[in-house]
């Protein structure tokens, strides 16, 4: 029988560290603002996440600091930022896994709102509209009294596997192509197409999918550097999905 002793919640120890956060500050709303690095010191606490550290900074040191947190549990995808050079979810990053000096910057590619806050929502809505990331059905009206159509349980699980994307933008920020091409759909977009391609409820054919991703701002713009795959906080199988989509779309084109 297992037991829960020696968990972090009960175990005490660890020496106290003082963390220094170097944060890239810029407020586009303020004409006098210039991009600059600002440093803050925070006493580390046990189980401290970047969410807790940044809240502490805003509430006790600098109320002007902008950032985005919503669920603070790694579910909503709001808080992706560049942590020591790489995109990741700040709420899920424990300070104990970092050195005492931590550099934070906003995600690139997305429109900057201020400091660590970027407008991923606007970008993602644009992507959704462009790729039409919804199931395209034949009938508009669903007969709500009748039983649902059946689906293979394993297929449902496979679709959910790809549906787990939280649109945090980490993949786009980690993408070499997206740095250079503002119109690139990113792994998030390609993963969505792969997801709807898998879904038998979606009546779109490969030809239809080609219409939305069959060019250099779509799957053929991808250079397979796979920064996306390596930073995805949900560990989505992006490498396989993008390759799968590339093969399918190349087949359409030939």
């Amino acid at each position: 029988m297992s037991n829960g002793q020696n968990n972090t919640a009960s175990g005490g120890k660890t020496r106290q560290r003082t963390l220094t956060f170097h944060i890239l500050r810029y407020n586009p709303q303020d004409p006098d603002s210039k991009p600059r690095m600002q440093s803050y010191q925070v006493e580390e606490a046990e189980g401290m996440t970047l969410f807790l550290a940044l809240s502490e900074i805003r509430e006790h040191q600098d109320p002007t600091l902008q950032y985005d947190f919503v669920c603070r549990a790694g579910i909503c995808g709001s808080c992706s930022m560049v942590i020591n050079g790489r995109p990741g979810l700040a709420c899920r990053t424990l300070t104990q896994d970092l050195e005492t000096d931590v550099t934070l910057a906003p995600l690139p590619v997305f429109e900057l709102i201020g400091d660590l806050s970027v407008n991923t929502g606007k970008w993602m809505r644009g992507m959704s509209e462009r790729l039409e990331t919804w199931v395209h059905t034949k009938e508009e009206e669903v007969n709500l009294s009748k039983a649902e159509s059946r689906m293979d349980p394993e297929l449902a699980e496979q679709i959910y596997e790809l549906d787990r994307c939280v649109e945090c933008g980490s993949c786009v920020a980690a993408c070499g192509t997206a740095q250079m091409r503002q119109d690139f759909v990113g792994a998030v977009g390609m993963n969505k197409i792969a997801r709807f391609k898998l879904d038998p409820r979606d009546v779109r054919t490969d030809d239809d999918f080609y219409e939305v991703v069959g060019d250099d701002s779509g799957v053929f713009g991808c250079m397979s550097l796979l920064g996306c795959h390596d930073v995805c906080p949900k560990e989505l199988p992006l490498q396989t999905q993008i390759a799968f989509l590339r093969r399918k779309m190349a087949t359409i084109g030939c």
Partner: peptide, 12 residues
């Protein structure tokens, strides 16, 4: 109009 098939061929 209908998307060109060229990007697919060029990529390949």
């Amino acid at each position: 109009s209908r998307k060109s098939r060229l990007p697919a061929r060029l990529d390949l």
